[in-house]
């Protein structure tokens, strides 16, 4: 009996104090992409330790999920910023506006390279995006205007210059932003090299996308979950397999795995930074302007993220695997962030 009344009292007490908690919030809340998560958290930690503000809470929800939460409205129960491994879409801006989130500041933080890698035990692979498309697409073109299910079993089937080993690529599942970016940058890049498919982009965009972005499901591409560490381990165990993941995992495991050359470019820090490595994408975060002022520290967080010691070429984010932008771009986004410029223009 006593225990029960104690429990009731505790629950009632919680319910009362909740009312207060929901109103005021003195801590920044960030949601969004799992790719930006390691960088965002590093900044959040640095920010919490070096300023008088509390350490922001960073959630890893994925780019789309983050923007959905971000656009849900204005008020302490909605997040203040969201990370994204792609640009915000027009539909998302409209959705935001519908819920009263009209002033959004876009800050680009740098680039992320997506690598195709294999174990150091095997030879390094040299591929073009076209070969990659022919190896991994669900259907491949056979002559003008005709598609056949991908018949290639080994890399040699794709191109006689490639080694005679089975095509086996471990990569992220369809829910992952990394996979979207890989399909868009690597596969579509190869897909476009067929003239008639490229011409289709203008007439039937949906079909064009279906042809270029569909990855085969017959076992050559293995969905290995969102955990990139796991893919790296599997590559070590199976020297014939290849893996698809973010550059920072290659950087951390350079003693065990090697990145394949794509279109003659090796996935190095420099090649991704200057844009010559073809499979790289920009990373962003978005700031809700309406919250600046009511949530303490937002301006200072943006300033920390865009400072030279964070996203600069020698900054601590570069150590974590972020590929920095050029001087001009860095200055532009630092300026935009400091002024809280409403800079989305789609």
């Amino acid at each position: 009996m006593f225990r029960k009344s104690l429990a009731v009292a505790a629950v009632a007490g919680m319910a009362l104090s909740l009312a207060n908690a929901a109103e005021a919030r003195d801590q920044i809340r960030i949601v969004g992409s799992s790719t930006v998560f390691p960088f965002s958290t590093a900044v959040a930690e640095q920010f919490g330790k070096t300023t008088k503000f509390k350490t922001p809470v960073v959630e890893s929800t994925g780019s789309g999920g983050g923007l959905k939460l971000f656009c849900a409205g204005i008020g302490a129960q909605h997040p203040d910023m969201t990370n994204a491994s792609r640009r915000i879409k027009k539909s998302e801006v409209e959705n935001c506006a519908k819920n009263g989130v009209t002033d959004i500041v876009e800050v680009k933080v740098g680039y992320d390279g997506i690598v195709l890698a294999n174990s150091k035990v095997s030879a390094q692979m040299k591929l073009t995006r076209k070969q990659l498309y022919l190896a991994l697409a669900k259907d491949i073109p056979a002559g003008e205007g005709k598609l056949i299910p991908n018949p290639h079993k080994t890399w040699k089937d794709v191109d006689a210059s490639l080694p005679d080993i089975k095509i086996e690529v471990l990569g992220p599942p369809p829910t992952s932003g990394t996979r979207d970016a890989f399909a868009e940058l690597a596969l579509e890049g190869g897909c476009k090299s067929f003239g008639w498919i490229k011409a289709m982009k203008k007439q039937d965009k949906k079909k064009y996308k279906a042809i270029c972005h569909s990855i085969r499901e017959d076992g050559a591409y293995v969905e290995a979950g969102e955990n990139d560490v796991l893919i790296v381990r599997k590559l070590e165990a199976n020297p014939k397999a290849f893996g698809v993941f973010g550059y920072s995992f290659l950087d951390q495991n350079a003693d065990k795995i090697q990145g394949s050359l794509i279109d003659g470019k090796s996935p190095t820090f420099e090649a991704i930074a200057d844009g010559s490595y073809p499979v790289s994408r920009p990373l962003f975060f978005y700031v809700k302007k309406a919250h600046v002022g009511s949530i303490p520290g937002m301006k200072e967080y943006v300033a920390e993220f865009t400072s030279e010691k964070a996203f600069g070429p020698d900054g601590y984010l570069a150590d974590k695997g972020l590929i920095p932008m050029g001087d001009k771009e860095r200055n532009k986004f630092r300026e935009d962030g400091a002024q809280l410029r409403n800079n989305i223009d789609l």
Partner: peptide
Amino acid sequence: MVAFIVDVPHGAL
């Protein structure tokens, strides 16, 4: 609750 949180929590809120 799947989030990066540095500060050690001091209560259920």
